[in-house]
Amino acid sequence: MEVKKAVIPVAGLGTRFLPVTKSMPKEMLPIIDKPVIHYVVEEAIASGIDDIVFITGRSKRSIEDYFDDSPELENHLREKKKENLLKIVQDISSLVDIHYIRQKEPRGLGDAIYTAKKHINDEPFAVLLGDDIIVNQEPCTKQLIDNFVKYGRSTIAVEEVPQEKISSYGIIKGKPIDDSLYTLDNIVEKPKAEDAPSNIGAIGRYVFTPEILDCIKETASGVGNEIQLTDAIRLLNEEQMIYAYRFRGQRYDTGDKVEYVKAIVDFALKNKDMRGQIEEHIRSKQIDPGSSPEKKDVAKKILSK
């Protein structure tokens, strides 16, 4: 029951970040000096994954370039004797075995995952969405894999969702087993808040048995005229029990502008070389006579972390 393969769908158009995503994948947006997708790949590796399949689209070539060798840059750094930077660049291209499959048209998350069927080869696998960064000493994907190994059933990561964002998530109905684990009764894609079965939403981490791929194949177009993964999960749940796991960690939905900025600020404050200057900048805004009480309150919360 080892989970050694992961699928990372990165074929989305990133419309929430237009116009920058017109020419740049949202997964390549930087968190200071590393793109979002780098953190996602690092989480997969730290969870024991050694084989990653990216599901890409027409405008995602820069992701392939990022994880590839860069002879010209490496030679330049070598000539300039910038050994530290050279090691960073070389390490990126040797992180893990990476493969690329192109989704020919944007037909939804379920369809994107199904394109990896031949590569999965009837093995259990993880799915990590390319715009979620989750920070925790034990990676979120590792937590799901541990639950999968224990119970032998597909496990999806969930968290409480603010009322105003319920319509953006797949919302579950489940029976609690303990404080962090549920058996899944149902999952509904992007319901209205008043129609939602709970406020517990699925986020961008999953571990599946290979049967999910057969369920995706049987799934008709749903919300947005796309093949929805939540519909396939519901089909799989009719055949075998699925678990929902309330993961431990801090999640940043970097596909959301506010969450993206929060991630940059938090990562900067954790950087010992940057923290002092960032704190000084925030304090200067906090005591600015023109600052609103709301802005001052936000600054206090940031500096209290």
Rank of each mutant, 00 (worst) to 15 (best):
L86F: 12
Q103H: 07
Y114I: 04
K118R: 03
K142Q: 10
E72M: 01
R153D: 08
D131V: 06
L86I: 05
S93V: 04
Y151C: 12
L109G: 07
Q143T: 11
I101V: 10
Q143A: 04
R61S: 11
V96S: 06
R102W: 08
L95C: 06
Y114E: 10
S94H: 03
Q103W: 03
Q137W: 07
E74V: 11
E74G: 15
V127F: 00
Y114L: 14
D65H: 10
H119P: 14
I113W: 05
K104R: 11
L128H: 06
D91A: 09
V127T: 02
Y151F: 11
T115N: 10
D146E: 07
S59T: 15
R107H: 10
H119W: 14
F125N: 02
R153F: 05
D122G: 12
N75R: 11
S59I: 13
K150R: 13
K82Y: 09
K142A: 09
I133N: 00
I98K: 09
F125P: 02
G110K: 08
S70H: 15
Y66E: 01
K117W: 02
V149R: 15
D97Y: 09
D111T: 01
K87V: 14
F148G: 06
Y100M: 11
T141V: 05
T115P: 04
D65Y: 11
I98H: 09
K80F: 09
V96H: 12
V96E: 04
N84W: 07
K81Y: 06
D91F: 01
V135D: 00
I113N: 09
